[in-house]
Simulated scan of single mutants.
Amino acid sequence: MIDELLPSPVGTGSTFVDYDAALTALYPQEAAAVASARPKRRQEYANVRMCARRAMGELGVPPAPVLSGGRGEPLWPDGIVGSMTHCPGFRAAAMARSSAFLGLGIDAEPNLPLAEDLLEFIALPQERARVEALMRSSPGVCWDRLLFSAKEAVFKVWFPLAERGLDFTQADIRIDPGSGTFSARLLVPGPTADGGRVEGFDGRWLSRQGILLTAIALRRTTGR
């Protein structure tokens, strides 16, 4: 499904099923990183990296370990940008060459309401009002959870570019229910990249098989 939200030539891999073989396929340094983790966490970690290796194959990139940085962000091979996500019942990875894209951000969430009071924590007043209106008009999608997912996708693009955090309330997100798109307007100065300052992001979303997916692909506009 994630491939439907991303342009060519982004490589993707995804799975709805956890495979035990993914654990034995981990590189030694990856296996060491989760050696003391709970079995559920080790399965998530291994299977999302299996997806990453599939994405590498689509790009024609040799398979390589994907370790994590200080904030849990994936550390990609040189010349690659990418993103990974996992939620109950779904794992996915996406990657592209940094010569074509400044960054990627993908996120998957169950199509279930957020925990009580979490919307107030993650959303601006105007975002809450828009979400509440969508909940009344189109109740088949948990719009509060979709907003959360879009904010996660924004952070995953933002962090490698800015090398600093971004609070939930530092980007104003508008979801278009008809087109399957969303936009994020940054409320703080964005990073300078590709010859200019990044002021926001445009993304796409879908709801299928009980999963909400969001994706952002930030293309380069100048050669590199």
Results as ranks from 00 to 15, higher is better:
Leu6Met: 10
Gly79Thr: 05
Ala96Met: 04
Asp176Pro: 04
Ala150Leu: 10
Leu114Thr: 05
Met95Asp: 07
Pro39Asn: 12
Pro39Ile: 08
Pro125Thr: 11
Phe168His: 02
Pro177Lys: 01
Pro88Ala: 13
Glu152Thr: 11
Ile80Pro: 00
Asp176Trp: 12
Val17Trp: 14
Arg42Gly: 08
Ile122Asp: 01
Leu213Ala: 04
Cys87Asn: 06
Arg197Pro: 02
Gln209Trp: 14
Gly82Met: 04
Met50Glu: 06
Ala215Arg: 00
Pro125Val: 11
Ala37Trp: 12
Gly196His: 07
Tyr27Arg: 06
Val131Leu: 14
Ala32Leu: 09
Ser8Val: 09
Gly195Leu: 06
Ala115His: 12
Leu67Ile: 09
Asp3Leu: 10
Met84Tyr: 13
Ala215Gly: 03
Gln29Cys: 13
Leu112Tyr: 09
Val48Gly: 03
Asp18Gly: 02
Phe159Arg: 14
Gln209Pro: 00
Pro189Leu: 07
Leu147Glu: 00
Ala150Glu: 09
Asp144Phe: 03
Ala25Val: 07
Gly72Met: 09
Gly69Leu: 05
Ala37Thr: 07
Glu152Cys: 12
Gly60Glu: 08
Leu213Asn: 06
Glu30His: 08
Phe121Ile: 12
Val17Lys: 13
Leu112Lys: 12
Ile173Tyr: 02
His86Gly: 08
Thr222Tyr: 00
Leu161Trp: 13
Ala123Thr: 01
Gly11Met: 06
Ser14Ala: 12
Glu4Tyr: 13
Thr85Asn: 07
Arg71Ile: 03
Arg219His: 12
Tyr27Lys: 04
Ser68Pro: 00
Pro189Gly: 09
Val131Pro: 00
Val198Tyr: 04
Val34Pro: 00
Arg219Gln: 10
Gln209Gly: 04
Val154Thr: 14
Val34Cys: 09
Tyr45Asp: 03
Arg38Lys: 07
Ala217Thr: 04
Pro189Tyr: 10
Glu163Gln: 15
Gln43His: 10
Ser98Ile: 00
Gln170Leu: 07
Glu127Lys: 09
Val61Gly: 02
Pro28Gln: 08
Glu4Ile: 08
Gln209Phe: 14
Val61Trp: 04
Glu73Ala: 12
Glu116Val: 07
Pro160Ser: 12
Thr221Lys: 15
Ser149Pro: 01
Glu58Val: 08
Glu132His: 11
Thr12Asp: 05
Lys40Val: 10
Met135Thr: 11
Glu73Ser: 10
Met50Phe: 14
Leu166Tyr: 10
Pro177Glu: 05
Gly200Ile: 02
Ser98Met: 03
Leu5Lys: 11
Asn111Tyr: 10
Arg224Thr: 10
Cys87Phe: 01
Arg164Leu: 11
Pro113Trp: 05
Leu67Cys: 14
Leu118Trp: 07
Leu206Val: 06
Ala171Lys: 10
Ala32Asp: 13
His86Pro: 14
Leu187Trp: 05
Leu146Ser: 11
Ala64Trp: 00
Thr24Gly: 15
Phe90Leu: 14
Ala193Cys: 09
Ala52Met: 06
Ala64Pro: 00
Ala171Val: 13
Pro74Leu: 10
Val48Pro: 07
Leu59Asp: 02
Ala123Asn: 00
Thr221Glu: 15
Thr181Gly: 04
Ala55Ile: 13
Arg204Leu: 05
